[in-house]
């Protein structure tokens, strides 16, 4: 299938927060309740539609365990978007966000779009991190924020798509060099850059990004 753009994503965060489950829910629309430890990095892909444009998302789901940190660091540089995930029922995963963010900022390109995700929103009864805290952290560090549930699929689609929208917006603003593949963005085959840039669409698009559907 042809696509207008290809974006590379990485998913990072502590072990057991549901990174692989988010990916599986997004690519296969299913949920696997058994925790199967990711070894190194796993790959998944899906096509999404933004502003009438087909965008291919290539997603690398990284291992959360500390022992794989050095391997997963290699993936920051070439990614256009990152989903930084914590578990709303385990505060320590929220507390580690700073270290993850430092790592990401240090190794990635400065324009990488980071989406903060509080996962497992279906476990409201066991909630340990308030939604407001996540929002505050995101505001403080300039991230987009969402609470999701890989189990119920709530907001999962939105998390990946909103990240793509933000990247797309940055492209339209000229913040990304789309010809440098090291940024994690590639123009699709038979696509011409001049045809895809239009100031009118960028205006319209910027509004969409901020709108979070709040089903969680």
């Amino acid at each position: 299938m042809t696509y207008a753009y290809l974006f590379k994503y990485i998913i990072i965060g502590d072990t057991g927060v549901g990174k692989s489950c988010l990916l599986l829910q997004f690519t296969d629309k299913r949920f696997q309740p058994v925790h199967d430890l990711t070894i190194g990095v796993e790959f998944g892909a899906r096509m999404v539609n933004i502003d009438g444009k087909q965008i291919k998302l290539q997603i690398w789901d990284t291992a959360g365990q500390e022992s794989f940190r050095s391997i997963t660091r290699s993936y920051y540089r070439g990614a256009a978007g990152a989903l930084l995930v914590y578990d709303i029922t385990r505060r320590e995963t929220f507390n580690h966000l700073t270290s993850w963010l430092e790592d990401a900022r240090q190794h990635s390109s400065s324009n990488m779009v980071i989406m903060l995700i509080g996962n497992k929103s279906d476990l409201e009864s066991r909630r340990d991190v308030k939604r407001e805290e996540g929002e505050a952290f995101a505001r403080e560090h300039g991230l987009i924020f969402m609470e999701t549930s890989a189990k119920t699929a709530c907001n999962v689609e939105e998390a990946f798509i909103n990240t793509a929208k933000e990247i797309y917006r940055k492209i339209q603003q000229g913040l990304f060099d789309v010809h440098n593949e090291a940024n994690g963005i590639k123009i699709g085959p038979q696509q011409c850059i001049s045809s895809s840039v239009g100031p009118s669409t960028s205006q319209r698009n910027s509004g969409d990004v901020e709108s979070n559907s709040g089903c969680c």
């Binding site: 190194g40 990095v41 790959f43 690398w60 391997i71 290699s74 993936y75 070439g78 593949e181």
Partner: peptide, 15 residues
């Protein structure tokens, strides 16, 4: 070495 293979692939080696 699977881990290195994946990183190399990630770095657009196929392309």
């Amino acid at each position: 070495n699977g881990a290195i293979q994946k990183i190399v692939a990630f770095e657009n080696a196929f392309e």
